[in-house]
């Protein structure tokens, strides 16, 4: 299972990359593997206000459905529209294909996220 060292994680299998006050959010390799062939993603809208650990999107595979939870609070700066037409990109490379960008509201929330090592334990 691929768990890059430089990212933060949630117990519900989202990853976060923090760059200059902006958080890129996606699903982990473990998540895409458990879901199987991803067929649809329901994205939020730009400027939606998200709260840490609350639902912001829904993802569907052939045999499963799952809600995605926001790792951090903040406003949605951008959504990855390419995923609407090609949700299978999340299977192909889950870390390259971010789902949303959030403007981080509160840096201290990052402390509630997991590092790669802690997340690896969750996946066991």
């Amino acid at each position: 299972m691929n768990i890059p060292k430089d990212l933060y994680y949630t117990e519900s299998h989202e990853w976060v990359r923090v760059e200059d006050g902006v958080a890129y959010v996606g699903i982990t390799d473990y998540a895409q593997d458990s879901l199987g062939e991803i067929v649809f993603i329901e994205l939020p809208e730009e400027n939606d206000q998200l709260t840490q650990f609350s639902e912001f999107a829904a993802i569907e595979s052939v045999k499963a459905a799952s809600d995605l939870n926001a790792p951090l609070s903040g406003v949605v700066l951008a959504i990855n529209e390419e995923l609407e037409d090609n949700p299978e990109l999340l299977n192909e490379d889950p870390y390259e294909n971010w789902i949303i960008k959030i403007e981080i509201e509160d840096d201290t929330e990052i402390n509630k996220l997991l590092n790669a090592e802690e997340y690896a334990n969750v996946c066991e």
Binding site: V39, F40, E60, S61, V62, K63, A64, A65, D67
Partner: peptide, 13 residues
């Protein structure tokens, strides 16, 4: 198709 909508997958949701 689109079975992810259905009760046997979504269960309580």
């Amino acid at each position: 198709t689109l079975q992810a909508r259905e009760q046997h997958i979504r269960r309580e949701k």
